[in-house]
Amino acid sequence: MQSGNETAAQLATPKASPGVSRHAILLQGDSRYRFRKAFSGIMAAAVAACTVFGVTILWIILGYVLVRGLPALDLAFFTERPMPYGEVGGGVAPAILGSLYLIAVACVIGLPLAVLAAIYLSEYSHGRFGDAVRFVIDLLAGLPSIVVGVFVWTLIVINTGSFSGLAGAVALAIIMIPIVARTVEAILNLVPNSMREASLALGVPMWKTILRVVLPAAKSGIITGVVLAMARAGGETAPLLMTTLGNSFFNFDLMQPMAALPVQIYNYAVAPYADWHTKAWGSALVLIALIGALSLLTRWAVRGQKLGES
């Protein structure tokens, strides 16, 4: 490479520096270049190692859940209620049903609101108000779930004097709303304008166009967004601990405490009994399987439909 003085010299300076053939540069460069090249290789290895670490840690965690959880699984685990310590057998059936029930009620409470807001943002709002709503949705999405738990606990549990399934469902709904609203708005924005114009040009009013053309076109994306939110809600623990509390018995009365899988895992895990720890791993395996099945089911349900996927 050229030494400093030459580089700064006048316009007619030849480019190759004294003593070094141009071709030598092409071939291997100087010692400093060999260092640069080695450093580049080291950094490539380092970022690859980061990736390997991130991927490995996931499979380690999943592997533990699988290996430690499998021994807990038998028929009774899926059909019976949890037994007090010392009694043989027992299962997490109330927790599985409770989780599904809570998510369903949460959907009933939260989805209409979230979808309406998403339609408003995508189809009607173009001004500051829409930006404000988007901003608030982002803030809600960033709210720690324990804060949602405290809110619902204060609002419902303390006021009614009882932990209840309803309180849990409300908490889950609040967690789902921003997720659904955001994904659905994004999906509706992907529906090409030409589809709306084609319908409007036929004299179909805007609201019918949205209901009959826009929403059906975005169907698969909307389903994906909803399932995403359901999966997220299904794994929530802290807000449920503060609202539904958990229950060892079957209960479908929304005004009573209700069992939920994540809460069951927590109760099993913090107890001092080895048998319960195994049950905690087993429940964790069931929870992961449920969440996984939910998303696989969606992928299957919306297969072949391009819009809004991935």
């Binding site: 996931l58 965690i61 794994g235 623990t237 802290a238 927590y266 895990a269 791993w281 964790a284 992961i288």
Partner: peptide, 23 residues
């Protein structure tokens, strides 16, 4: 790799807790 990362993000916090306590 991206799929794995999505999975990692989808694991509920209680399961991280369980793993953290025992492993």
């Amino acid at each position: 790799v991206s799929f794995t990362v999505e999975l990692l993000a989808a694991i509920p916090s209680i399961i991280y807790g369980l793993w953290a306590v025992f492993i």
